[in-house]
């Protein structure tokens, strides 16, 4: 994948297939620790211990367990290639947490990419699921943060569906502007 945001889009599709109601995406760029951490937490149906063990093994997927095909392996590979690491934990009936950490300065780290596009695609595909995006940038002397929660948007919208094009494109530009401001000129 050319962008980390595409991995995120892909991994969240697992959460959607696992019937999650709420998906939390935490992104933290920590320049003090030279780390970019991504965490995706869902309240979906989770995985059994057996399935969890196989989750990141490429090609062991069967049609029945297709939701854990190549996506997680790719994400793991991308993180490890940059000198980072990958973790996944899951509990049946509770949900799944996927954590990938990238080395910020590594030449083998793909850019984070367009998170606004990823969020818009998710909102369009699954308007009934709620998404939270917590975006944090830590530098030597500053912590900047941007938090986005579809529950707040839906409350404001009341009866208007969130997946209307005009709403989605406003949300997209809202996320884009805020991420840019949070980055404060840094390239992530």
């Amino acid at each position: 994948m050319r962008e980390i945001s595409l991995h995120i889009l892909d991994i969240v599709q697992n959460s959607i297939k696992a019937e999650a109601d709420l998906v939390i995406i935490d992104i933290e760029a920590n320049f003090n620790k030279d780390a970019l951490s991504i965490r995706i937490t869902d309240d979906g149906k989770g995985m059994s211990k057996e399935l969890l063990k196989k989750a990141t093994d490429t090609f062991v997927t069967t049609r029945k367990t297709r939701k854990v095909g190549m996506g997680l392996s790719f994400f793991k590979m991308a993180a490890e290639n940059s000198g980072g690491n990958f973790e996944i934990s899951s509990k049946e009936g509770m949900g799944t947490v996927v954590m990938a950490s990238f080395k910020l300065s590594s030449i083998d780290r793909v850019p984070l990419g367009e998170m606004d596009e990823t969020m818009a695609t998710l909102l369009m595909g699954s308007p009934n699921i709620d998404f939270i995006l917590n975006y944090k940038v830590k530098t030597e002397n500053k912590i900047r943060e941007f938090n986005f929660d579809t529950r707040e948007i839906k409350e404001e919208l009341s009866e208007i569906p969130i997946d209307e094009y005009e709403i989605i494109s406003s949300i997209k530009s809202y996320i884009k502007e805020n991420i840019k401001a949070t980055n404060g000129g840094l390239v992530i």
């Binding site: 707040e152 948007i153 404001e156 919208l157 009341s158 208007i160 209307e164 005009e166 709403i167 406003s170 949300i171 530009s173 809202y174 502007e177």
Partner: peptide, 15 residues
């Protein structure tokens, strides 16, 4: 859209 509150203007148009 600069903040969540701005969505109200869009909402009126959408209605």
């Amino acid at each position: 859209m600069k903040s969540i509150a701005d969505i109200n203007a869009i909402k009126e148009r959408m209605q």
